[in-house]
Amino acid sequence: MQNSHSGVNQLGGVFVNGRPLPDSTRQKIVELAHSGARPCDISRILQVSNGCVSKILGRYYETGSIRPRAIGGSKPRVATPEVVSKIAQYKRECPSIFAWEIRDRLLSEGVCTNDNIPSVSSINRVLRNLASEKQQMGADGMYDKLRMLNGQTGSWGTRPGWYPGTSVPGQPTQDGCQQQEGGGENTNSISSNGEDSDEAQMRLQLKRKLQRNRTSFTQEQIEALEKEFERTHYPDVFARERLAAKIDLPEARIQVWFSNRRAKWRREEKLRNQRRQASNTPSHIPISSSFSTSVYQPIPQPTTPVSSFTSGSMLGRTDTALTNTYSALPPMPSFTMANNLPMQPPVPSQTSSYSCMLPTSPSVNGRSYDTYTPPHMQTHMNSQPMGTSGTTSTGLISPGVSVPVQVPGSEPDMSQYWPRLQ
């Protein structure tokens, strides 16, 4: 039975679970980093996980050691009161100082060594604690504590007292930064006198190289990059290397530039699409467009005044059976039934097929058609009795279509119309 579990990581490298990497692998990681390889490249070359490479390099940059820390136990506290007071002093002298600059000053002034120097995250935590204590304490208590930490007896009751030896409130920041720059020169002199001055200088240079600022491109470089971006948004590694040799930039910087440029292009394309949609959409909808001609068919113009009344309900007709019959029939052209047409008796099958359309009241044959006459024609229609054979009435077949029909004066039988409509 094995005491430890061995495995293979996602890159194909072998590791022992819970145990640190061998010293030979750690040394190779540092050597590759000094030669300029990126952590992701080191991870692929040595088949070590990216997190492990970053952790080893980060500890090497901070402490200069590649040895693993002790497994188990607690780390001794490195942010001692003396170190905290120095950090507060540096922050007062130059409020814009960075944590890694404070760390360098602690090393250069001999406050800490490589073994007990606090990390950048520890210094940031100390600065946050100082800021929170400043908010919790009152103004007087804060000034007393700062005077105690600074070891001075001057008056701290006013704002300019934060910067000793100065009279203009805006000047101390520059003086403090100048003092810090002077301390940086002392850093070089002190570290050069040490035993491991060369190694420390190499480590600091490598650290500065990794902690780079934003790349500033010249106009020629920007023009070359934009020209390549117009050709393709995704250049391959050969195109990037050719462009890197042409404009004297690292291939990694060119790759990052193209990634950022593609993101910018997507944002601009989104804005262009929004403007295009806004320009195509009308600002207001016309009133006429809300009524579609496919839904509402136009009603033909009436030929006679009587045809303006298109349904039985508008003429005072309360018989719903006839109203439904007229509205359900398709529109037909106007025609006239003459008196000489043969009077065919209704076929029983045809009569039964339209039995649902006729009223059940037996008085329908005896009703006159003056009910369908509009009010303004009552006088004219009353002067001509319906009993004469020459009287013409208008029957409504569908809305908007008038059918003048000659009705025999002897017997106005409704059943004569249905064979004609089939």
Rank of each mutant, 00 (worst) to 15 (best):
R147A: 12
W100E: 04
S35M: 11
P39W: 03
V120P: 15
E82K: 13
Q135T: 13
Y90M: 09
C112Q: 05
V16C: 10
E62T: 12
R67V: 08
G12M: 03
M137E: 11
V111T: 10
S24L: 09
R44L: 04
N150V: 06
N9M: 02
W100H: 08
L149P: 15
Y90C: 13
R26H: 00
V16Y: 15
N124G: 06
E101K: 13
A88K: 00
G36S: 05
S85W: 09
E109F: 10
L21M: 02
G64R: 04
W100L: 06
G73F: 00
V30C: 06
E93N: 13
Y90P: 02
E133I: 08
I97M: 15
C112M: 02
G13C: 01
S4I: 11
T80N: 05
A88T: 08
Q27Y: 13
H5L: 09
R92M: 13
D140R: 12
V126D: 03
S119G: 01
Q135K: 13
R19I: 05
N116Q: 08
R128E: 09
V48N: 00
S108F: 11
I66Q: 04
R147K: 11
Q2H: 12
L130C: 10
I87P: 01
G7R: 15
A131W: 08
I45D: 08
L130V: 11
R44A: 06
L130R: 14
R38G: 01
L106Y: 02
N3V: 12
N124R: 11
P81Q: 08
A37C: 13
R92N: 10
S4E: 11
L46P: 01
D23M: 15
S122P: 02
I117Q: 15
P68R: 03
C40T: 09
V84L: 04
E109T: 12
I97L: 13
G13A: 01
D144K: 11
A131S: 08
I102N: 01
W100R: 15
V53N: 03
V84M: 06
L149Q: 08
N3I: 10
A79L: 14
D41L: 05
I42M: 02
E133F: 09
L106P: 03
V16Q: 15
D115L: 13
M148I: 09
G36I: 00
T63R: 03
S108W: 08
I29A: 04
C40S: 11
R19S: 02
R67I: 06
Y60K: 09
K75P: 02
V30N: 02
A70R: 15
E109Q: 12
S49T: 15
R59S: 03
G138N: 13
K28A: 10
A131H: 09
R69F: 07
Q10S: 11
I56N: 01
N3L: 10
I117Y: 13
A99R: 05
Q2R: 14
T63W: 01
Y60R: 01
L149G: 14
V120T: 14
P76Y: 04
T113A: 13
E133P: 10
T80P: 05
R67C: 07
I102P: 02
C52S: 09
M142D: 11
Y60G: 03
N3Y: 08
V83A: 07
G36Y: 01
R69E: 05
G58L: 14
S43T: 04
A99H: 02
R105C: 09
S6W: 15
R59F: 04
V30Y: 01
E93P: 03
P118E: 00
W100V: 06
I102G: 05
C112R: 07
G51F: 03
L149R: 14
D140K: 12
S121I: 01
Q27V: 12
R19Q: 04
G141M: 14
T113N: 10
G64D: 05
V78N: 01
R105M: 12
M137P: 12
I66K: 00
P76R: 11
D140Y: 12
N17Q: 15
G18K: 02
K75A: 05
V53P: 00
L21S: 04
C94S: 13
L149E: 15
I123W: 02
S119M: 05
P68G: 01
A131T: 08
S54V: 06
T25L: 06
N9K: 01
I42R: 01
P118M: 05
E101P: 05
V126T: 09
C94L: 12
G36D: 06
G12C: 00
L106C: 07
E82P: 14
P20S: 03
R92H: 13
E62M: 10
G73T: 03
Y61E: 06
R38K: 07
D23R: 07
V8A: 01
S119L: 00
S96H: 12
E101A: 10
S96C: 06
L127N: 15
V111R: 10
I66L: 07
A33C: 06
E93S: 08
G13N: 01
M142Y: 13
S132M: 09
V84H: 04
G138A: 13
S49E: 00
S43E: 00
R69W: 06
R67G: 06
G138L: 13
T25W: 04
R105N: 10
R38Q: 03
R26I: 02
K28N: 08
S4H: 10
V78C: 03
V83Y: 00
N124Q: 11
G141F: 11
L32C: 04
L32P: 00
S54A: 05
S43A: 08
S35E: 14
I29Q: 00
P95Y: 11
P95Q: 13
P22V: 06
D115K: 15
E109K: 12
V30F: 03
G110E: 11
L57F: 03
I29R: 01
S6K: 15
D140Q: 11
R105S: 11
D115R: 13
I66M: 05
Y90L: 13
P39K: 14
N129M: 07
E62I: 07
S54T: 08
I42N: 02
G51K: 03
I29Y: 01
R67W: 05
E93F: 07
I102M: 14
A33K: 09
V111N: 09
G51R: 03
I45M: 14
T63C: 05
Y143V: 12
L127S: 07
Q135P: 09
P95T: 09
G12L: 04
E101V: 11
L107D: 10
R105Q: 13
L21K: 03
N3T: 11
H5A: 13
I42F: 01
L46E: 01
R128S: 05
T25I: 07
L11D: 02
V120H: 07
A79G: 04
I71G: 13
A131C: 09
G138K: 14
G18W: 02
K75H: 05
T80A: 03
A88P: 00
R44D: 05
P81D: 07
V120N: 14
R103K: 13
S4N: 12
V111D: 10
C94E: 12
S54H: 11
N129T: 13
L46A: 01
I102K: 00
G138Q: 14
R67S: 09
V120E: 07
G36H: 06
S24M: 09
S43G: 06
I42S: 01
T80V: 07
L46K: 02
H34S: 11
L107V: 11
P22R: 06
G73I: 03
G7L: 10
L106M: 08
I97H: 08
L46C: 08
P118Y: 01
C40K: 06
F15C: 02
G13K: 04
P68D: 06
R38H: 04
I102L: 12
D104I: 09
F15S: 01
G64M: 01
I87L: 10
M142S: 11
S132Y: 10
G18E: 02
Q135Y: 12
T25S: 07
F98R: 14
G7M: 13
A79P: 00
R92Q: 14
A70W: 04
